[in-house]
């Protein structure tokens, strides 16, 4: 049993996910969007209507966060950080010149994290036959047991993702949800449109009409 757990825990792909800000935040948000409404729904101590309302609201909030994150934060901040660093802060760094964009570097990083046998096997596959044919990157991956991973580039991408995650999930997503959740709940028939609270106000409006 412990051996099986150890095998799972030593999985390189999982370790890459754990160290990848964008992927780990996406997974956490997905887990929350399923887990939190799920926990509300299996609670027998509250009324079915309340459960349904609270679970839907929580799901919609987490789903909004995930949508904002996937649609805006990953493409803009993750990729933008690499481009910005390459053009401004680290324009003289030779490692940045080796990669055209963040995706190419991340492909390289994922391969470099694998053991040499798996790495060579992946490089021989059709989709990777013509990859990394410049700047000695392919040789580095094929011949070195521990190839250079260029932590500066990795860190730049992670810092960009971190800033994007903070902006997206702490500032942007709550504001977007503020305007979208209640209309969505009304569309699903779980909330009624707010009536004017003061009858006098209604009367005044009617008079004006």
């Amino acid at each position: 049993m412990i051996g099986a757990i150890s095998n799972v825990l030593s999985n390189s792909t999982l370790a890459n996910i754990a160290q990848n800000t964008a992927t780990s935040v996406s997974i956490e948000t997905t887990l929350k969007s399923i887990g939190r409404p799920g926990f509300i729904l299996i609670d027998n101590n509250i009324s079915p209507d309340t459960k349904k309302y609270a679970a839907t609201k929580e799901f919609l909030y987490q789903a909004t966060c995930l949508a904002v994150y996937l649609a805006l934060i990953i493409p803009v901040f993750k990729k933008g950080a690499f481009s910005l660093a390459k053009k401004t802060f680290f324009k003289n760094k030779p490692e940045f010149a080796k990669f055209t964009n963040a995706s190419e570097y991340l492909d390289y990083y994922n391969l470099a994290s694998k053991n040499i046998t798996n790495r060579k096997a992946t490089l021989m596959k059709d989709h990777s036959r013509n990859k990394f044919m410049h700047d000695g990157l392919r040789e580095e991956l094929q011949n070195n047991v521990k190839p250079e991973k260029y932590p500066l580039i990795k860190g730049t991408i992670e810092l960009g993702s971190l800033i994007g995650s903070v902006f997206g999930l702490a500032i942007l997503a709550p504001q977007i949800s503020h305007y979208t959740i209640h209309p969505m709940l009304r569309m699903l028939g779980m909330e009624k449109k707010e009536e004017p609270k003061n009858p006098a106000d209604t009367h005044r409006i009617d008079n004006k009409v």
Binding site: A85, P151, K154, L162, V166
Partner: peptide, 18 residues
Amino acid sequence: ICTSMGNNNKPTYVVMAI
């Protein structure tokens, strides 16, 4: 900062920052 994050990016950093 970037080199340090590239070498050791803990999953706790982002959630604590958020």
